[in-house]
């Protein structure tokens, strides 16, 4: 189910497969590694996940249609492999039920409470790992949308396909994720001695 189930199977020659693999898949390897690393939060797991994903992509190359968005296709495989193979054995403590988290953060109540008073000047002084740690501290589903949107520049529609969720959910999840990230960052800002505005 993880590969485009309704796309017609292509017939590629070995040479075409190589061209696609090296020309369309390999150029995304750094983004893919970063995604794998940010999901697993472990360099070894990230390596394995990336390798599995690329081998899978090659094995199912005929489900990939030339000229379509290779990056989105690869990200979707990686994200599904992560859910199927890594999330269960992940070292992260078991998370609260995601639906619960989402409905909590979707309530308007929380929007009024979360007014992260963070200032640009404080951000300018975050020259270390603050932002990276703040991102890693988010629940994986919130982390994921920030990576896809802010680091990788995917459109909402592409994100909806990668994550198998409706566009409306992409939008609201992103909004919550950014509020949570700002919350974390303002904690750091406070520790750095910034008064909140």
């Amino acid at each position: 189910m993880e590969l485009e189930e309704n796309s017609p199977k292509q017939n590629y020659t070995e040479a075409e497969k190589q061209t696609i693999f090296h020309g369309e898949f390999m150029p995304h390897i750094n983004s893919m590694y970063n995604f794998a690393y940010r999901l697993t939060l472990d360099a070894d797991d990230a390596k394995d996940l990336l390798q599995d994903t690329y081998l899978k992509a090659y094995r199912f190359i005929e489900s990939f249609q030339k000229g379509t968005n290779a990056k989105a296709w690869l990200f979707r495989i990686l994200k599904n492999s992560f859910i199927n193979d890594y999330r269960k054995k992940s070292k992260e403590p078991s998370k609260v039920d995601y639906q619960e988290v989402e409905s909590y953060y979707n309530s308007e109540e929380v929007d009024r409470q979360i007014t992260p008073d963070l200032r640009v000047e404080a951000l300018k002084d975050m020259i270390g790992d603050e932002i990276s740690n703040a991102l890693n501290a988010l629940d994986v589903d919130f982390r994921t949308v920030i990576i896809l949107c802010d680091l990788e520049g995917f459109k909402y529609e592409e994100m909806a396909k990668i994550l198998d969720i409706p566009i409306g959910t992409v939008r609201s999840r992103l909004h919550r994720a950014r509020n949570l990230l700002k919350e974390k960052l303002s904690e750091y800002a406070k520790q750095m001695g910034y008064k909140t505005a």
Binding site: S31, V120, L123, I131, I146, I147, L151, R178
Partner: peptide
């Protein structure tokens, strides 16, 4: 500013 910070601090090459 947050977007810029994310881009400069949270991308690692393979």
């Amino acid at each position: 500013a947050i977007r810029q910070l994310l881009k400069t601090k949270c991308c690692q090459d393979a």
